[in-house]
Design a protein around this nucleic acid. Structure first.
Length: 492
RNA sequence: GGCCCGGUGGUCAAGUGGUUAAGACACGGCCCUUUCACGGCUGCGACACGGGUUCGACUCCCGUCCGGGUCACCA
């Protein structure tokens, strides 16, 4: 469809927030669905907090998630530039127009004066809004104030008693009255536009057709509508999606765990899983399926099925989805994904040798069914390395006191030593024959060996554990257990 | 405080006047399995409250309560 243009407009004041990622995702999904374009615009007018580093981080996070854009500061486009600080001339032009038409005026009030007004309003219970003190300054007064060295801001003159209607694509008809809004600042004293002003000019100039953004912007929208009207611009469609809340029902913050998407990457969540989870937060598919590829999401997505109520970030569900993706990965993919974590833990080198790769494959085979996030490999692998075996519980210790324990272990060791090549298949067969030969229940064979080798009653398949440990380490660990128990290890 | 948005199980949520009120995560039980996990089956568990409208309200209207957002020279 022609003319469908959506945008994601983050301010580069920190890493990409998980909520921002969802906004970006919804915009991306709808743009893709409708065959439109996605524009990335950097809203860097907060000089104190904006940084190029954050911009880069945001772009990297979006790319990691698989969210791509058609126009933006890095790729260009015919409606650029795509950083607001590079668009100051545009804003200036419209400010002059607004000033000339009387839709805006200079205001010289100091912060102290404004704060006093605000406090008064608060104490009397009146609406907190600008008094309009500077709205009718004479040229002489302006000259006098400027002579004092005051730098003015530009305020928008809000029309009186005007009903402002927003037909929101997710919320329906929302009505505001201009009486509730004070004359607001559109250009700061340093000449830089404020958010509400720049966003209108940019969305308009960039021909944005749909604005999907977080609900926190809904209350700002009437101001923007007023600006659209004063500037003679046509309005885009608005869709305000609900916020993501933490477990305590307040806005997501550090207290709730990871808030930025890089943190999820570092924890070992797969981008596909994060995207899948984010899509499900506030949007519901028509069917019962919950696991969706990006392509399926694009196919299924629609604003009609976006919920109005805020959603709480359910870490358990994210973990579940991530586990699903880990299990659905091929071994090759999984090893590829896990390598950075194995490397970081010092288990493999940066450029893994063929032996290390083989080891990693074996490890991931053992762990694939058991992982929910990749970072858990570190802890899981720990039990498979080193000489020491620590018993996890009294229950585990009891297994070692089993009457048949020495017999099982010794027979197992003999058979293992007789094996020339330790492969998972070979060990599997070995254990099978061992069970048959000893005529003991499976549990009495497998559990003692398991506990003797890793000190735990739970874990990956025993034959895989043995194959990963290798013959020498298995034997050494068995020795350790025997000496620890004061038993005769019957070494030949 | 004014204005705005919202309120279905612990969580995500389907639902648009008549349903035994789906499904998923989490939790309990059972099965599978050498263990855990995975998988399968099963169970627990909800329409915030009060008034209307209606033959009939989770669904529509009003009020209350609760939660969130916003009222910046931040976005």
């Amino acid at each position: 469809m022609e003319g469908i243009r959506l945008r994601f407009a983050p301010s580069p004041t920190g890493p990409l927030h998980i909520g921002g990622a969802r906004s970006a995702l919804f915009n991306f999904l709808l743009a893709q669905k409708l065959g439109g374009k996605l524009i990335l615009r950097i809203e860097d007018t907060d000089l104190a907090r904006s940084s190029r580093e954050s911009e880069l981080n945001i772009c990297a996070s979006l790319k990691w998630l698989g969210i791509t854009w058609d126009e933006g500061p890095d790729v260009g486009g015919e409606y650029g530039p795509y950083r607001q600080m590079e668009r100051l001339d545009f804003y200036r032009k419209y400010t002059e127009r607004l000033l000339a038409k009387g839709n805006a005026y200079y205001c010289y009030c100091t912060e102290e004066e404004l704060e006093q007004e605000r406090q008064e309003a608060l104490s009397t219970g009146a609406a907190v809004k600008y008094s309009g003190k500077c709205s009718a300054l004479s040229p002489e007064e302006r000259k006098r104030l400027e002579a004092e060295g005051r730098k003015p801001v530009v305020r928008f003159r809000v029309p009186e008693q005007q009903e402002i209607v927003i037909d929101d694509l997710v919320r329906g008809r929302v009505v505001f009255n201009s009486e509730e809004i004070g004359d607001f600042v559109i250009v700061k004293s340093d000449g830089i536009p404020t958010y509400n002003y720049a966003v209108v000019i940019d969305d308009s100039l960039m021909k944005i057709s749909h604005v999907i953004r977080a609900e926190e912007h809904l209350s700002n929208t009437p101001r923007q509508v007023l600006l659209y009207q004063a500037l003679g611009f046509t309005m885009p469609h608005f869709a305000h999606i609900s916020l993501i809340l933490g477990k305590d029902h307040t806005k997501m913050s550090k207290r709730h765990g990871a808030t930025s998407v890089v943190q999820y990457k570092e924890e070992g969540y797969l981008p596909e899983a994060v995207v899948n989870f984010l899509a499900l937060l506030g949007w519901a598919p028509a069917g019962e399926e919950e696991i969706f590829s990006k392509e399926q999401l694009i196919e299924e997505f629609s604003l009609e099925r976006v919920a109005k109520n805020p959603a709480i970030f359910d870490m358990d569900k994210l973990r579940w989805i991530n586990g699903m993706y880990i299990r659905e990965s091929s071994l090759e993919q999984l090893v590829e994904l896990a390598l950075p974590f194995l490397c970081k833990a010092g288990y493999v080198s940066e450029n893994p040798s063929p032996e290390e790769m083989k080891w990693a494959e074996l490890v991931m085979t053992a762990l694939q069914e058991r992982l929910t996030i990749l970072r858990e490999v570190e802890e899981q692998v720990k039990i498979l390395l080193g000489e020491e075996v620590t018993l996890e519980s009294e229950e585990a210790a009891a297994v070692l006191r089993e009457e048949t324990f020495p017999l099982v272990i010794n027979t197992f060791r003999e058979k293992l030593l007789a094996l020339d090549e330790i492969t998972p298949e070979a060990v599997k067969a070995l254990l099978k024959s061992l069970t048959k030969e000893l005529k003991l229940g499976g549990k009495l064979v497998y559990m003692p060996i398991r506990v003797a080798l890793i000190g735990q009653m739970h874990g990956p398949d025993l034959y895989l554990i043995i194959a990963i440990l290798g013959k020498e380490l298995v034997v050494r660990r068995l020795e350790k257990i025997f000496s620890g128990l004061g038993l005769n290890s019957q070494v030949e």
